[in-house]
């Protein structure tokens, strides 16, 4: 096996250039090295000016998402050897403004997360003395959607978000469903306005790439389709029983 691999890394220094350029680095090709280890090698040994985000190195923090050979990937969970003999192209996440090099502006996603009120909403007057109890079956209903690590790979994979930045997007809708389907939650009516707005679920045309890109098998595409059915049923009900319910 070759002892090194070429990494083509996107550079963008807003003080120096108008648009990103690619810069090549040769890094050791070790079988236990992920793309992120290659970037760390560049930063430590070859070029200290390279900027990128990372933290846990174990697929939990969701910080190190980038575009690797055109695909949205967690760079800590994507191995250099899978791209041998190379070169391997590392670019920032698509569909987000690039702040510098491989760092994108995640402000839009952060704003969207809070729009769907991703916390347990209770209508009771008083807080109970103990916990809200839940059966394993009730846990199973939403558990899949609770695995999201906010890495934004789904936004990067979604062409609809790329075309329309106002679209609420995969992770935010999946997270809304995580609480809507939680037996302890009573806030699905509060989330409905954001979800069924023109920028909510109806913008999605089920490309399905969000679920393909998701490193945690959250299946946002499935969550969105299921919510469409829920919202459509609610609308029908409100037509049939204008006074009843919401």
């Amino acid at each position: 096996m070759a002892r090194s691999i070429t990494m083509q890394v996107a550079r963008y220094r807003p003080d120096r250039e108008a648009e990103p350029t690619m810069q090549s680095y040769d890094v050791p090709l070790r079988k236990d090295w992920a793309i992120l280890d290659g970037l760390n090698h560049i930063k430590d040994e070859l070029d200290g000016t390279l900027s990128y985000r990372w933290s846990c190195r174990m697929g939990i923090c969701g910080s190190c998402g980038m575009t690797v050979n055109g695909e949205p990937k967690l760079t800590c969970a994507t191995f250099l050897t899978d791209y041998a003999p190379g070169p391997v192209r590392v670019e920032p996440l698509r569909n987000f403004p690039v702040v510098r090099d491989l760092v994108v502006d995640i402000g839009d996603f952060m704003a969207k997360l809070s729009v769907v009120q991703p916390w347990i909403i209770r209508k009771d007057e008083e807080t109970p003395d103990g916990e809200y109890l839940q059966t394993p079956a009730e846990l199973e209903d939403y558990k899949q959607f609770s695995m999201c690590i906010n890495c934004m790979l789904c936004y990067s994979a979604c062409p609809i978000y790329g075309l329309n930045e106002h679209f609420l997007g995969p992770a935010a809708i999946a997270l809304a469903q995580r609480y809507n389907l939680d037996s302890r939650d009573q806030g699905s009516a509060d989330r409905m306005d954001a979800l069924s707005a023109s920028t909510g679920v109806w913008d999605c045309t089920y490309v399905g790439e969000c679920s393909t890109a998701c490193p945690k098998n959250v299946d946002p595409a499935g969550a969105i389709q299921r919510y469409k059915l829920t919202a459509a049923t609610e609308t029908l009900k409100s037509f049939l029983m204008p006074r009843g319910g919401r």
């Binding site: 409905m192 306005d193 954001a194 069924s196 707005a197 023109s198 920028t199 909510g200 109806w202 469409k228 919202a231 459509a232 609610e234 609308t235 029908l236």
Partner: peptide
């Protein structure tokens, strides 16, 4: 954000 009345019906169709 306007709530969609017609979109759900068109989606059902």
């Amino acid at each position: 954000m306007p709530k969609q009345r017609i979109a759900p019906i068109l989606w059902l169709l």
